[in-house]
Amino acid sequence: MEKRFLTPAETIRAIVENGRRVLTQSRLRTVVLSFLSGVYIAFGAELATVVTQDAAGFVGQGIARLLSGSVFSLGLMLVVVCGAELFTGNTLLSGSALQGEISWGKVLENWLIVILGNLVGSLFIAWLMFESRLWSSGNMVDHSLRIAVVKCQLPFGVALVRGILCNWLVCLAVFMATAARDVAGKFLACYGPIMAFVASGFEHSVANMYFIPTGLLLSGELGRNEPGLTWGNFFMANLLPVTIGNILGGVVFVASAYWYVHLKGEGRRERPEG
């Protein structure tokens, strides 16, 4: 009888071995998969914005956040089941480097390509949604601007800590999805942690590549001068600290922790060049 799921030791080993794909996968393939991942996360972010545009007034702030996290989880479900390269999930490549399966140079190369591909994919969906004019109905404009402004006004340290907490949960979702052996199990593995990080108000770098540019596009179109909402603040006040936090959350608290518990001391392969 086939196992319904992998043990934690088997899961981190599968994640580490899967990291070897960066040794043979072409850069162009990585670019395409990264673009798609940015698109998928943006779909989740867009859906969360639509669903919660007026929900708090009817069901309260807490339930509205629960709804937001519930529908946003679609993004990681698409990434996991359809296959794509997501920067936050790829912080788990650090486990492969710790085990000597790939070099740290390959990890950094992958991260750079993937985060740029994620950015392009997210911006593409933000632009398409802007051009769709679907934001012109309901409370979409005010809600989208409010999300973007709040994110751009976060202090650096606050954004960094929220980034750590976010990717701790995201990488646990990827960890559990790897352990699951069927699609239903992978869906459930994605849902819980992603719902939790969104409902809690944590910060995800790739999601913010949709949320904040959407606010910037709308503010420019409507001539609304929102405090702190600039492209400079998007990159330096939000994306930079959140990305650093996401790296720390995934590398330290998931990849390194489970590598240390289950794989440290096992025989290593010769460290590859690159």
Rank of each mutant, 00 (worst) to 15 (best):
L112I: 13
W259K: 07
K186H: 06
Y258D: 13
T243K: 03
A42C: 01
G265R: 05
G117A: 07
F253K: 01
F202W: 09
V107G: 13
M236N: 04
V59S: 04
L188V: 11
A42I: 02
N208T: 07
G95P: 08
M195L: 15
Y260E: 12
K264L: 04
T91W: 07
S122Q: 03
F156H: 03
A180R: 01
R20D: 08
V242W: 10
A173P: 02
L240H: 02
F202A: 13
N238G: 04
V107N: 14
R268V: 11
A55S: 12
L229W: 12
I247Q: 06
G274L: 13
G75N: 04
I194K: 04
E10C: 05
G245I: 05
L188N: 00
L76P: 05
A189K: 07
N139L: 06
L108Q: 01
R29M: 12
V198N: 08
F197N: 06
I115Q: 00
C190V: 06
M140N: 09
K186R: 15
A173L: 05
T91D: 03
F187C: 14
L240K: 00
G38S: 08
L222F: 11
L112C: 13
G185N: 05
L93Q: 10
L92F: 13
I194D: 03
I115P: 00
L248D: 00
P8C: 13
V120K: 01
V120M: 09
T30Y: 00
R13T: 15
R268A: 08
I244G: 06
A48T: 09
N139R: 13
N238H: 09
G185T: 02
L240T: 15
G250K: 10
L134M: 06
A180I: 05
E46I: 12
R224P: 06
C171M: 05
G117F: 00
L33G: 04
E17F: 00
H143S: 07
N225A: 14
S122H: 01
S68Y: 10
A14C: 00
S219M: 09
L112W: 04
N18G: 15
L172E: 04
F156V: 10
G215L: 12
A48L: 12
W259S: 09
G163Y: 09
L160G: 02
S256I: 00
T52W: 10
S96P: 14
L74K: 08
A55L: 13
S34M: 03
C82Y: 04
W104F: 14
G138P: 09
S70L: 14
K3A: 10
A184N: 10
F197S: 05
V114Y: 01
V161K: 05
K151T: 13
F211V: 07
I247C: 12
Q25K: 15
L145F: 15
I194Y: 04
L66H: 04
V150A: 12
V22R: 11
G220Y: 06
F235T: 08
L67R: 02
